[in-house]
Design a binder for these strands. Structure first.
Lengths: 129, 129
DNA sequence: TATAAACGTAACCATTTGGTTACACAAATA
DNA sequence: TATTTGTGTAACCAAATGGTTACGTTTATA
């Protein structure tokens, strides 16, 4: 006899979180920008925003779950540090389309050049008339 | 007499939408990836996903509002086209931290090299003993 | 001309998000 | 030792998100 057991796995939210979600929020992007300059405690980060400290704590939790920051306990303070390499996946994703937009921008420049040369030719014709 | 008039401006949601929000959703990233290869109609895009066509329409609306795609009406079909240059702001934001992670990766490599050379020296010492 | 196809959108729903206040607790300080 | 400081988290809430079905409209086709 063969028995099949079906299991529904409940995936907690933070498992579904990724770097794209992390940088989707402007406050989290600002936190990243702050930590890019220096390590900061939770309170020092919170001073830069109008939202409550617990709200900042939540953002930090998300950033930590995505690996974008690490937190070191120093006495009663929590020192937050950026882990920039974990931004790389997002960078690579966008970077794969770089060729696409550069190509488009090239053709835009080509279009501009073309336009310019045609205008010059027009000018020539006019002056020749 | 001076009169002050205070006006509260109601900002509709889509005004707050930006490219970071656009690429936060995995389905929207997949749509971008599809459109990077070729122009597609709405139905053609929807065929690639398990969600309903109206759900895809909503995603396309968001992508269009962020300028990441443009839509051209061709008879009764809507041809979607990627506008890759509007990914550039997101690229530039992440790119500003590139130096940071490259520096970190360099020091990681340096750390690895250091470790390796030390191990080799250890080996030397052992063989010299 | 009646029907089918290719959409957009309204109305609705459950879940997620991002904020708040209140509270607990460990570590520093008086 | 009592108090203050730094922080995490629970409980709660409104709004946003992402999905659905139902329906309307325009365009192509039988």
């Amino acid at each position: 006899m063969v028995t099949f057991i079906f299991v529904t796995i409940w995936l907690p939210n933070f498992m579904r979180r990724d770097v794209f979600q992390a940088i989707a929020d402007p406050i989290r992007r600002d936190i990243i920008s702050l930590l890019a300059k220096e390590m900061l405690t939770v309170n020092a980060i919170a001073e830069n925003f109008d939202i409550s400290r617990p709200a900042v704590s939540k953002h930090l939790k998300i950033l930590r779950e995505c690996g974008i920051i690490t937190i070191n306990k120093q006495g009663r303070e929590q020192l937050c540090q950026i882990e920039p390499k974990n931004l790389v996946p997002a960078f690579l994703w966008i970077d794969q389309y770089r060729e696409l937009w550069e190509q488009k921008l090239d053709s835009f420049e080509a279009y501009l050049n073309d336009l310019q040369s045609k205008t010059q030719e027009n000018g020539k014709n006019k002056s020749n008339k």
